[in-house]
Each structure stands twice: as C-alpha cells, then as structure tokens.
C-alpha cells in the first residue's frame, strides 16, 4: 500500500507542476515581433520600466524600453503597492492588447508581473535631433531620446486661420487656457534646423514638483537648450519632455 501511495502522490505532484507550468506558458515577443503583430491582438513582452505617470484608480501608464525597442503601456492594471515597485530599471513582463490611438502605438488593457531576479536596465537617451521632420523618426517611437541645440521660440498656437502668439516661452495647456496650480501640461516651441516643433511636459509624468516643470517655466525666448524625453505620438510627434538644460557648448 505504501508503494501505491508513494506512486499516487508522485503523480499528483507531477500533475500539479504541469498545471503550474501551463499557467506560465506564454510566448514573449521580441520588439520586432511586437512591431509585426496585428492591431488588437494579444501580445506579451518583457521590458524595463523607464518612467511612469502618476498612479490612479488602480491603473498606471508606463514608458518602457529594452535594448531592442520601446513600449508605452496605457492605463495598465496596477495596485498602489505594485506601483511603488515600478522604479526605473525594473524588468516587467506585460501582457495586453496592441492598439493605436492617434498614431501612438501602445499596449492597452494590460497586466504585468515584476521579474524579480533580473538586473535593472536604464536606457541611454538616443540623439534624434537629426531625424526631426523625417520619416525615420517614428522608428524610435516611445524611446527615451535627446534633442540637442534647440532654440526656444515664443509659443504659438492655431485658432482657425489665425495663429495666436502668446509671446511667452511656454503656456499652461496647448492654448494657454490652463493656469499655475492646476494639472496643466506645459507646451513650448523650439526651433531645430529652421523648423518649429512643439514639445510637452505631461503633468501626470512630470508635475510641478519636478525639475523639468520648473525648468520649462524658467525658459526665455531665445534660450538654446538640450532636451530629453520620451518620443510620444499624438497626430504626429509630441515628445513628453523629462529634462531641459542649457545647451552643452
């Protein structure tokens, strides 16, 4: 009888292991495979947290990057406790659905797990100054990037056929309808190689307690600056800037 019991328990253990293994049986995509995946299909990737927007209502929006490419996880399910663990460099496995919103390719309705034993990895900013205005720029979508030697212009926005010049180096909100002390994104324009580009400090990523928010509020028209941020897309390139400094000599 003891032999039979030993045999039965061994089988039970094997079945249990099989059950656990099956639950973990997912195919992790490379970045190329992710890019090739159809929209609205389920995808699983492993990558490293680079930054995240403020946690809210059991959701978090994460900027992530691996050595082979970058990702944007919009409103990923996340407890507040787990949000505190998502420090830059943390390796995570994310499963969700590939989606596109106004040109931004992202993963939505995602869940994640932290890969505990992984070495942390933080991306170096890739200088894409020379790619501004080219079709190659979108190949770097969501990556942590740098723009060098940009000249601050007075911030202008369109209102119908009219161009409104705020005559200021930045505005609270795209049309200056926001105000200090609220959750307004900062908008500012820079000139690179003769072309004007609008950049954003996304409030939920970098609020008024951050150096970059203060740095942008201290900009003057004519300043020459270097910038870093994530290459977000909204009907065209719309980088979420995370650092601003006087241009290196």
């Amino acid at each position: 009888m003891k032999k039979i019991m030993t045999l039965v328990l061994a089988v039970v253990m094997a079945l249990s292991l099989f059950a656990c293994a099956s639950a973990d049986d997912v195919t992790v995509m490379t970045h190329d495979e992710y890019v090739a995946a159809e929209m609205d299909t389920e995808v699983t990737v492993e990558t490293y947290v680079q930054a995240h927007q403020s946690w809210w209502n059991d959701q978090i929006t994460v900027y992530a990057q691996s050595e082979d490419g970058a990702y944007f996880f919009y409103n990923m399910a996340c407890s507040q406790e787990d949000a505190e663990k998502l420090v830059p460099g943390t390796k995570i496995r994310v499963t969700g659905f590939k989606s596109e919103w106004s040109g931004e390719v992202e993963i939505v309705d995602a869940t994640f797990e932290i890969i505990e034993d992984a070495e942390p990895w933080i991306a170096e900013a890739t200088d894409v100054t020379g790619l501004l205005g080219t079709e190659e720029l979108i190949d770097h979508q969501n990556e942590f990037v740098a723009f060098k030697g940009a000249t601050v212009e007075s911030y202008k926005y369109s209102k119908g056929d009219e161009t409104v010049d705020t005559e200021a180096a930045f505005a609270y909100g795209w049309d200056a309808s926001g105000a200090e002390g609220t959750d307004a994104d900062l908008y500012f324009s820079v000139n690179v190689n003769g072309e004007t580009y609008t950049f954003t400090v996304e409030y939920y990523l970098c609020n008024e307690t951050t150096e970059v928010y203060e740095a942008v509020r201290s900009l003057n028209v004519g300043d020459v600056i270097d910038l870093e941020g994530f290459l977000y897309w909204y009907n065209g390139v719309n980088p979420h800037i995370t650092a601003v400094a006087p241009a290196a000599e």
């Binding site: 009888m1 019991m5 039965v8 328990l9 089988v11 039970v12 079945l15 249990s16 099989f18 059950a19 656990c20 099956s22 639950a23």
Partner: peptide
Amino acid sequence: LPKTAVILLAALAAAWVLIGLYVLK
C-alpha cells in the same frame, strides 16, 4: 475555471481521497 486550475484541483482532491483511504485502511 481555467483548465489548469481544474487539473490542479482534481489532483488535490484525488490526493485527499487516497490519503483518507490509506488512513481508514
């Protein structure tokens, strides 16, 4: 229930039944 959960639960139930039978024997 997911298939893997069914397998796991069935295996655990089977184990308890056999342990019970062994104790009775």
